[in-house]
Design a protein around this nucleic acid. Structure first.
Lengths: 352, 352
DNA sequence: AAGAAAATGATATACGTCTATCAAAAATGA
DNA sequence: TCATTTTTGATAGACGTATATCATTTTCTT
């Protein structure tokens, strides 16, 4: 009933433990036919290496780092929270995670931080990235040292990372577009869009996806060019106030941050307001959903992303394949399917 | 840099390893002041038990069982798939999972299967349950044996399980209602609902949530009484054909299964069709979304549920608290935010 | 066939914890 | 104070794997 050990495999294969070990850990200097015998015994016995024992023996620890933009952005605060939370729970599995704050959206700052990582002994790093060739060299050095590198939320140069963990922003924009289209119930309309900056790749992608769907499937709806906000709440609030006075505006879509300003602008105007879609479920967007000030939130599930980052990094470090994980898709929230508020009762168990 | 061991704790506390061990594992026969000294050393050193070593030493294995309704239902096929997949990946952590098929929706069958579990040595069991007092006694026996019991997808009697892993079906129905409401764009309409049976608690709850939202927030939309389908595709197809010929039908909502019939009925009729919402993303509902035969799928993310079931059962067995996990919420799919098709490329890695 | 090279076997130690045993020391009761 | 109970210390083996060393056997060269 108990699972076979490597000694069992060795015995079944008719070789010594040492040889079986040489095969399992590719130490070389083994005859082909011994390799074959051991492989055969492995499959016939259904041997799987006991990872607990292996890690114990190796004294393996996983030292992870997360490079996250500095600042008080609600979304990244949530990300930081999830990292700390996940790290606390994996401490018993010898996983440590350090959050390193980086100047937001500055290539040089990020570059310096990556170079600084070289001095430290990390096994894996998750980076909220930028698409800049300037990052390729330092990342290559990092990977040459054997550090696993993944992009988080915002991708790194493709060749410079082993995986990207984040949603497809075109799909996110398309989803928003679909929802805005549906909400017009076949009627025409006019949508005002907002973005932080079109240099931010995720913003540009969301907007493109949004336009794609509306022009293809809802041609009777006009999409106005985005108003740039630098993701600042004040800018959004001021612009919103102007925009709301326009006639015939049927919907609003903000691909970026700064939603507290957007919501503040809506707070006054209590007549019929346009259909409002924003990104990221945080305290104020959640509250605005409940208060019916906005209609829809498209969320990237940072909790899922962080879990996935830990899992992927560990798998990369162990060079094994990935365990099953939920797929990352843009999630649609309305006021009726909100998750429990993890800020107020973070550690809430699911049990009775 | 390396984390402290129990020997370190003992040394710091000025007691022997044996005493430290007695405290850590509550073996009793320890003086209060020794307990205090050890506890203090634990917190000051930040000691956390190395679970890998502990499990290795104990020879711990997690024998899990899943009681799933028998039959060819696409949703439960997906569930079974996810269980097998997750089990395969946890084999290296000494987790075994056995899927036990049970007569679908029959209290006596389920009762017998639970009694049969008593003869086997399982550590944890996840059961797709029914709300029946007849299950309470056998489940109590099971739990008395020290077996962790959780309800999966459909809850068990509240007192008879340690946790429920599944979505809130009222929220799912409310979400569907919200979407149908929004899709009317302020206009009136008439919605035809379908259900397998109102004795199935999840169906009744979804319908109730659906009605709640529409009557409260979209009173200009009429919700017609559900047509009962026993979740059979043929029945759905026949009834749909009748219903589609009616005038003024603006939306359709099926809270239950059998959607292949619903879709087949829509296939002929290529004019303007009502807004269609169904539950559970499976091969045919996915295809129908892509083919624009239906508009929305509300999914309970069985992959997430299964992951969660494994995690919760292990935590219950180890009597430790729960690691961070994504919340379970009804997920809204449109044709733009579908996950990668896990049936065709199941093991697909996320990396480049 | 002799010598070199490659492959194999036997074995020991370590990882951190659990579990058990036995002897020794300290606290308690009368 | 002596006997009893409670508490403590010391230590050893086991879990399954990783890693290393050294001696021995097999295979290859020419």
């Amino acid at each position: 009933m108990t699972s076979p050990t490597l000694s069992d495999v060795a015995r079944a294969a008719g070789v010594s433990y040492a040889t079986a070990d040489r095969v399992i850990n590719n130490r070389g200097n083994v005859a082909e036919k011994s390799i074959a015998k051991v492989r055969e015994a492995v499959t016939s016995l259904g041997y799987v290496r006991n990872v607990a024992a292996a890690n114990l023996s190796r004294g393996r620890i996983y030292r992870l780092a997360f490079l996250i933009p500095r600042g008080s952005n609600a979304f990244f605060n949530r990300i930081r929270q999830h990292i700390d939370h996940a790290a606390a729970h994996q401490a018993s599995e010898r996983v440590t995670a350090e959050v390193i704050e980086v100047a937001a959206f500055a290539v040089e700052g990020l570059q310096d931080s990556i170079l600084a990582l070289l001095e430290r002994d990390f096994d894996g790093v998750a980076i909220v990235g930028l698409q800049s060739a300037a990052l390729e060299a330092p990342l290559a050095e990092l990977r040459a040292k054997g550090v696993a590198v993944v992009g988080l939320v915002s991708d790194l140069p493709h060749a410079a990372r082993a995986a990207y963990i984040g949603i497809d922003n075109i799909a996110a924009g398309r989803t928003a577009g679909r929802m805005v289209g549906l909400a017009h119930g076949g009627q025409g309309g006019k949508v005002q869009t907002f973005a932080g900056s079109l240099n931010a790749r995720d913003h540009a992608e969301r907007l493109a996806g949004f336009r794609e769907v509306l022009s293809a499937d809802f041609p009777q709806i006009t999409v106005l060019d985005p108003i740039m906000t630098k993701d600042e709440a004040q800018v959004l609030q001021a612009q919103m106030q102007k925009v709301l006075s326009q006639q015939g505006l049927t919907a609003i879509y903000n691909v970026g941050a700064g939603n507290s300003g957007l919501i503040a602008a809506l707070d006054g105007d209590q007549g019929t307001r346009p259909f409002c879609v924003v990104h990221e479920l945080v305290a104020h967007s959640r509250q605005a959903l409940m208060a019916r000030q906005i209609d829809l939130v498209i969320d990237q599930r940072p909790d899922v992303e962080i879990n996935r980052a830990f899992t992927v990094l560990r798998a990369l470090i162990d060079a094994k394949d990935l365990p099953p994980m939920p797929d990352l898709v843009p999630t649609v929230y309305v006021r009726d399917n909100l998750p429990a508020d993890t800020l107020t009762d973070k550690m809430k168990a699911q049990d009775t």
